[in-house]
């Protein structure tokens, strides 16, 4: 059985009054292709299909999408991991406006990223060489800096669906903690003050969808827990 039944979410704002699912039969020749390869094959059948892709190896974060109900990166998800009963259903990431087909408007996601001031802040004049950091201090950034901004986590998060404008979301908070945890960053107090409200951090209900979908194996819930601890320690 090498013909896969693929069902893809289609919507072109210029011609479609409503989205619909388009059916494709894709001959996989028995190979365990990546979902992105399958998308290329469907695009050969219908060139009007739109999706984002770039590195095709799971580091650029372009092709986050919903595959048989679960968010992930199409380029590093083999069919054997998601296909059930020979059927693959592809939808855009949930919770964001659709521009066309599988392409979503990531504006609000990026806005939450920018909101946490995702850059090192250190006003002490820099030395002539690098700032020193011990391997132990540097280890604290592992599991944080590797984020690829694919939005799989935030768009799987019910709290983000509900308050995308007020809750920073797992991706933004993971990056917030990446700078809070950096021994070279001096803006800890300002960063915490900016998050000190009922929504920015505390809308996280520990559902942990973010952890279960992160294609890089990162753990935003743990980072959010650390920020909560810092906020609470600050308050007492």
């Amino acid at each position: 059985m090498s013909t896969l039944q693929v069902s893809v979410y289609r919507y072109n704002p210029e011609t479609d009054s409503a989205p619909y699912m388009q059916e494709f039969q894709v001959d996989t020749k028995g190979r365990d292709l990546m979902v992105l390869d399958v998308l290329h094959l469907t695009k050969e059948q219908d060139s009007s299909m739109a999706y984002r892709r770039s590195c095709r190896e799971g580091v650029c974060g372009s092709d986050g999408m919903n595959m048989n109900g679960k968010n992930g990166l199409a380029c590093i998800t083999p069919l054997s991991e998601v296909v059930k009963n020979n059927k693959l259903v592809l939808r855009p990431l949930p919770g964001l406006p659709v521009i066309r087909d599988l392409v979503v408007d990531m504006g609000i996601f990026y806005k939450q990223y920018e909101r946490i001031q995702p850059y090192l802040q250190n006003d002490t004049p820099a030395p002539a060489i690098e700032r020193l950091q011990s391997p132990e201090e540097r280890d604290k950034l592992d599991g944080l800096y590797e984020c690829i901004l694919c939005a799989c986590c935030s768009t799987a998060c019910p709290s983000f669906w509900w308050n995308p404008d007020k809750f920073v979301g797992p991706a933004g908070l993971l990056q917030s903690y990446r700078f809070l945890a950096d021994s070279r960053d001096e803006a800890t107090q300002a960063r915490l003050a900016d998050l000190e409200d009922p929504f920015s951090v505390f809308r996280c209900r520990g559902i942990m969808n973010c952890v279960s979908v992160c294609p890089k194996g990162l753990n935003p819930t743990r980072a959010i827990g650390k920020i909560r601890e810092m906020l609470l320690a600050n308050a007492t």
Binding site: N122, I129, E130, L132, S134, E137, R138, L141, D185
Partner: peptide, 23 residues
């Protein structure tokens, strides 16, 4: 080069480190 690399570190690039704290 060294100037440009140190600038990157000052901007926050999370380089791996030796025990003495250098890149």
């Amino acid at each position: 080069g060294p100037k440009a690399v140190f600038e990157l570190e000052h901007m926050g690039l999370p380089f791996s480190r030796f025990d003495n704290g250098r890149i």
